[in-house]
Design a protein around this nucleic acid. Structure first.
Lengths: 236, 236
DNA sequence: CGGAGGGTTGATTCCCCTCAAAATCAGTGG
DNA sequence: CCACTGATTTTGAGGGGAATCAACCCTCCG
């Protein structure tokens, strides 16, 4: 997390110290039990240490839309703290480890450490950029391209934190979870994955995503990771 | 704009002064000509004074997905400044008036005025919440509910800045623009609007959206505006 | 008066959903 | 060791919602 924020704002020793004090309490949650409920107002946010989580919204008819998956290093529930109310739910996909950060501490740290606030604003903007890309994915790409694009994006994000390469990555997502994220039915996801596999692009097996032909897949999905890139600190 | 930020953080005279100095230059742009191009790196952001704009992404095959419409009081291109590069384009829907704010000034103001940074973080979070709702709209609602929900959301946002009521609002969007925002074809948007009109819910005519039965429409679209609400200042 | 932009309607096609049913696998308890 | 259960993946058949193609209308405007 420090590395991620540090990529944007060169943090001073003082600021790192403030950041350090934020890490209040380490907690674990089991897969499938919500951390945050839609409509609840939150006292704390979390930073994901290990495992995967997802943020989603439920509709009245029981359908759900997964907005994003969180991987180690990501914030959980930051927006809920800033907006004072959670407009979405968060569920661990696997058992997860997190460090809890109290809402009051966050707000106080921001007020006293402007560059830290800036760094978090950057992190929030990057999150928003990912949601936007996801929106384009669902709105304008067909099921095949959409799925391919999504798997590539996950891979790129995981690679940034050392959990994946162009060869592939470990991925605990079931086809049901993929379906809820992609706005498809689980059955159709299965067919799409078969087509991608038979097209020699990607294979998902036993919790591993393997890129059989990364370059062809990038071209097929029109994948362009500019929005994930960050060359160096903006503020020194 | 001041009113909007002030709703979240009670700003001091000093902070208002900084805010005041930010408003560097008033500019106008004509409808249809991009303010910001995808991939360009930006020197300045804008605050929309009058008129409507939209932010969108283009795909290689010429399709586009409109991510959001901006109405008076909204930021334009804030994310581009924070991330140093624009991952999307912005186009005025109508002729617009904006005030330009230089990127360097923004970053400096944030560093010196933490509460201001906090206020902008809040604004960014609210924008993200709207994109998320839009994502759910496209991912999990059928065309009818999706369109209804979208028109209600626009109405609620316009009402917040005094440009609309539960009776309706002035809306310069063509069916083509609606289609690009909703992930539908313009032809289908036309059919959907007819159905909503014949269902006695909403009528669009001559640039005016008229809610024929607001309550029925809210129920039909499962519209819940929590994510737009903000009761009072969080920080005093 | 011709052309452009926007709205409306019909016919046809196809992508993806729904329903239905196996197959596989991990865990669990007898 | 095996029956049983639940979760997940896989495959098939049929239907529907939205796209596409193709017109036609209107208004505005140079």
């Amino acid at each position: 997390m420090v590395r991620k924020l540090g990529a944007f704002v060169a943090l001073s020793g003082d600021e790192l110290c403030v950041l350090d004090k934020l890490h209040k309490r380490r907690r674990t949650f089991v897969a499938g039990r919500d951390l945050v409920h839609q409509g609840q107002s939150d006292e704390s946010a979390y930073i994901l240490v290990s495992g995967w989580a997802c943020s989603y919204k439920l509709l009245q008819d029981g359908q759900r839309q997964i907005v994003d998956f969180q991987i180690p290093g990501d914030f959980l529930g930051l927006r809920s703290v800033v907006l004072q109310i959670s407009d979405h739910s968060i569920e661990p996909v696997t058992d997860i480890e997190v460090t809890e950060v109290m809402a009051t501490d966050i707000l106080e740290a921001f007020a006293n450490t402007p560059r830290l606030a800036m760094a978090v604003l950057w992190a929030a903007s990057r999150d928003e950029a990912m949601v936007v890309e996801h929106l384009v994915d669902i709105g304008r790409r067909n099921a095949d391209q959409r799925t391919a694009h999504f798997l590539l994006e996950l891979g790129a994000r995981l690679a940034l934190v050392g959990l994946g390469t162009k060869a592939g990555y470990a991925c605990p997502l079931t086809q049901y979870l993929l379906a809820d994220a992609l706005g498809l039915s689980a059955i159709h996801v299965n067919r799409v994955l078969r087509k991608l596999r038979e097209g020699g692009m990607v294979t998902i097996r036993d919790g591993f995503v393997t890129f059989d032909n990364y370059d062809r897949m990038v071209e097929f999905a029109e994948f362009d990771p500019v929005y994930l890139d960050q060359v160096g600190p903006l503020l020194r």
